[in-house]
Design a protein around this nucleic acid. Sequence first.
RNA 1: GGGCCGUUAGCUCAGCGGUAGAGCGUCCGCCUUACACGCGGUAGGUCGGGGGUUCGAAUCCCUCACGGCCCACCA
Length: 905
Amino acid sequence: MLEKTYAPADVEKRWVEAWSKARLFGSAPVKGGRAYTIVIPPPNVTGALHIGHALNNTLQDVLIRWHRLHGREACWVPGTDHGGIATQNVMEKQLKAEKLSRRDLGRDAFLERMQAWTRDCKKTILGQLTRLGCALDFGREAFTMDEARAKSVHHAFAEFYKEGLIYRGARMVNWCVRCGTALSDIEVESEERKTKLWHLRYPAADGGEGLVVATTRPETMLGDTAVAVNPKDARYAALVGKKLKLPLTERLIPVVADEHVDSAFGTGAVKVTPAHDVNDFEIRQRHPEIETLQVIGFDGKLTPEAGKYAGLSRELARDAVLKDLGDALVKTEDHKNAVGTCYRCQSTIEPLVAWQWFVKMAPLAEKARAALDDGRFKIHPASWAKPYRAWLENIKDWCVSRQIWWGHRIPVWYCQACNAGKLGSTSELYNTPELKVAAVSAARPESCPACGGKDLIQDPDVLDTWFSSALWPLSVFGWPEKTPDLDFYYPTDILVTGYEILYLWVARMQFMGLHFMDKVPFSAALMHGIVRDKAGKKMSKSLGNVVDPLLMMDKHGTDALRFALVSQAHPGKDIPFAEDSITGPRNFANKLWNSTRFVLDYALKNEPAPEGGYPLAGLDKAKLEVADRWILARFQEVSETARKDVESLDLAAAANCLYGFLWDDFCDWYIELSKAALADPERGEATKTILVQVLTGTLKLLHPFMPFITEELYQALKPYAGETAEFAFSAGAPVLTGWEDSSAVKNMRFLRLAVDSIRRLRSILEVHPGAKLQAKYSGSGGWAEFLRDESETVMLLGRFESLEKVDSRPPASAAAVAGTTAFYFAMEGLVDFEKARGRLAKELERLAKDQTKCDAILGNKSFVERAPEEEVAKVRVQRDETVARGAALKDTLEALGAGRSNKGV
RNA sequence: GGGCCGUUAGCUCAGCGGUAGAGCGUCCGCCUUACACGCGGUAGGUCGGGGGUUCGAAUCCCUCACGGCCCACCA
């Protein structure tokens, strides 16, 4: 016997254990089987999971369970990501609390601490995923920095190197001063800031007035080595080729003409600082006569080249320079400017020239573009395809070296002898040009292949964390080994992730997969939105609007949380979420619970299940009643709709469709109707069968969305359903064919219309809900006959004591109308007549409006002539019904006028 | 500066060519023998503005406004 209210905690705990014990989610290649594979977007080992992870993983779990239910060899690979800079930052914060830095510890000790942290964090994360109900194949757990994944990374690096797709070069890179490393272009976020545009006068070397440049970064003027103007700009034509005197310094700098300069912006003259600005760097490449002077160092402080400003931070140097410029600062205006910031620590990016490792992207991107264009890869929603293609077509090389410690060490070795002492004892090579590579290998080579030297050092940098993530769909199946897993599961079926990492991750997986396997790593990507708060703001600790998924699970149940998230997760749309989003789904869980209680306790009276249960096959369709045929037809239709929704990746639509069916169709109507049918010895068995089968089937379809409660209820129902699967997970989808039945659907629609109408009238007349009325009905055509057969049903739902047919309206009766059929009941002693008259009058008004509208439409000749016949017929029927209802209401009003109120008498 | 998405009931969102829908909230009844995490009923919308196509438009086209996002080297 089930409790009255569903209590999730105990149920969830039990099934987590049972599933785990049964190794239910394990998967292995099956000959002739059809895989359905997903690799998890591995969460960074930076801490506990947040609600975004809950969404991401719930969606994947729905897909995995759904496809398992529908017969696929589902495999969901779990794992975590070492998380590079992000994770190192977490550790550095911890160290800071102990008043330590990573350099205090040294590289080895630091990495040891990182490993320990990682172990704990992985445990937390996998525990949380388990708690969320994720059907992950835990035997396949992977980590982006474990031994197997390291092999993939080293192999990919070596292959790229061999093919000339990876190279070391000096470029202007995005340098994060706080993190102390270079970043790739897409790891820089741009942030609009209110700042100033400063106008500075640079006098001519010959004593002339020179010109005025406009800048947003006055401190970099110390590194200016030229001024550029547009070649077509007549204002400055005479100055081109001349020298200017750079204020605050003794240096003379040339004026050059360059197409890049926009004459309309600022003063039309641009100061050129090749060491600290991407554009200026490029201008210098077009004008080799320009020198380069680095005045800001990798530590974010001014270099000795900056003279007396050396050692100041960028910010302080700006203040000092502006102060010292004096009259040379001719104007200051407000200006909005986009500033690059580090996506991991939000500090302002400094563009600096450094020696880094780069991956050549154009050839890789070209393959990805082709896969997109010929449909081998599809993005959902499709609106992301365009920006994705644009990105592929304008791609720049990928800076993959990071000057941090936590990551895959770059597998490159340099020979001291061959590099003529350039290496020294330094652990930083980003300032060291033109190094000769001795070997590309994970392990230390015996000796230098070129000179036989034994003094080899490994590149101190590590790879961008996204490099190993990019290989994830390959590496988790053992690539580069040709494993049976790789053969069976690759390419995977779908990748589910947030749109914010489309370029950082999704695109690069496409690159790697297409390059190394010549096959897309996944044929579809489902890009979901971000979970926001109810005001549409991103959740963040500083705003204090974060919702802890674990707390939600504890308070309302995991299934409720999952359903709340999925039922709002339309592809590509953000999800507004607050704790009250869960109450609806929580109530729904309870509804499932109680409908099962009804079937087991009330319908089946907890009798033991007969051998083989109550199979659908045992039904004789010819002997079924309208309601029976209707609910079966609806169920078949709903399973089909849900299947299509999942196929088109609109999981929210599938969830909502099942929700509506269970609550509205099954509970509100079928269960209510079954109460009479169960009492009828001729219909009892069939009704039990339908109750059991439709409920069990719905629970199975809901299982991917709400695995715990459906498992619990499935276990209770399965003997009655005649099922033998050990778990709902592997029970197979309900099989429904041949139950479509348009006449049952039509009849049921009429029945519902009739009951709705009766209920409305009862409510208008304030008939006590418990009062049983003596009712009569009249009507012509087929419905009258239908009602005779269904009088039991109408009596039950309309709460009538009796229902008999009459030819015309009994005097002093109220009438409820469905189509052209009317139900009457006496009003004697029932109502507050005044109030009822008011409401009836209002409804009459509405009907009159409807009728006018119908008449207008039908009076429109071109509509009648040109619209399809069935549309015209629809309006005609509607008009007739409106007229009939109006007449009945008028009668009722009249009767009310004749009657006497018993209120206040 | 380009591009994309959105603007529908008080709130959050479905609907995407045939008389405006759901959930939550409101209000009014009901502890009706599965469920008060419930049942029945009710109010509430010129579907962002303006044009156009069509017999008919929330739904297609154009345009404007307002949000949001992505991309971009205007110093």
